[in-house]
Computed example of a mutant assay.
Amino acid sequence: MYQPSGKPTILGDCLLLTVSILINAFGNALTVSLNLGSALWTASAVNLAHLFAMNLGNMLLIEGVAVILANALLLRQFDWHRMLGNFLFMVPFSYLVSGITQLLLHLGITQLPIASAVIVDIIGVMLISCGISIYQRVNLILHPNDDLMQIIRFRFLHGNAIVASLVAYLTPLTIICITFAIQHQVWAVNVGTFVALIFQGSFIALSDRFVFGRLRHQRL
């Protein structure tokens, strides 16, 4: 899977990308189905989906398109290769999260005792962070939300994952506040959301070191 130089082969990159997407999608689905707090971007999409009475997969897709345009503004150019990669990542990922969420609900995940559910929700946040860490380092294609964090991290904050994560979360936090003001109700915001807000950058940094530790950031 790795070349003598230590970099992954093309096949290795594709395998790592696939594994990371599955890890991230499963983590997101755990947090959404338990409703004990999703990562901030997912939580904002859940609340928008309730506001507009839309399927979560469709809302994740719409939100992603908006972030692609925001990323282009930050980069001050329309990098069509990068934008196409964002779109290719986002479309199957959005519906994968929605599909796994429905499967977990069908399997009765909401019947877990509250203490176990909170632990599983936090594990979901950690899985999301692990998936992000892997595919950001592979950097073949990225989800636009994670591309935003990557742009902020390496173009403005000298590679600091923790601060970049907090800055990138300002937008979904604002969305959640606006939807709450309109609906007077909030979904997918709970203990897991606060864990993600405070610790997801640290989880990503730890995953950079300990999950596929030979893998370094590429194509920056």
Rank of each mutant, 00 (worst) to 15 (best):
L16G: 06
Q136F: 01
I119G: 11
G64M: 11
M83A: 12
Y169E: 09
L112D: 07
V46W: 12
N55K: 06
G201K: 11
L74Q: 08
Y95I: 04
A25R: 08
F78W: 15
V189E: 11
F180L: 12
P8D: 00
L11W: 08
I109V: 10
C14T: 02
T9G: 07
L15S: 07
H217G: 03
A164P: 07
N28G: 12
A181E: 11
I182M: 11
L104Q: 12
N71E: 01
L73V: 14
V191Y: 10
F203G: 14
G27A: 04
D146Y: 01
L140N: 00
N71I: 03
L11A: 10
L48I: 09
L51V: 00
D147L: 15
L16E: 03
N55I: 06
I128V: 15
N145T: 10
N47T: 04
G131F: 06
N139Q: 04
L15Q: 07
M149P: 09
H158P: 00
G37T: 04
N86Q: 07
D146E: 11
I23S: 05
I10F: 13
Y169P: 00
V19P: 02
V186S: 14
V46T: 15
I178K: 04
I141T: 04
T110F: 03
G57V: 09
Q150D: 06
P172W: 13
L104D: 09
R216W: 02
L11M: 06
Y135W: 05
S94V: 08
L11K: 07
V189G: 13
A43L: 00
N160S: 09
I178A: 14
G37S: 08
P4N: 09
I68E: 05
L17S: 01
A115R: 09
F154E: 12
L220N: 10
T174Q: 02
F89E: 04
G108S: 08
R137A: 02
F199L: 13
Q102E: 12
N139A: 06
A66Y: 10
V67P: 03
L197Q: 13
I198G: 15
A49L: 09
M83Q: 08
G213P: 06
S116E: 05
L157H: 10
D121A: 14
I100T: 10
A115E: 09
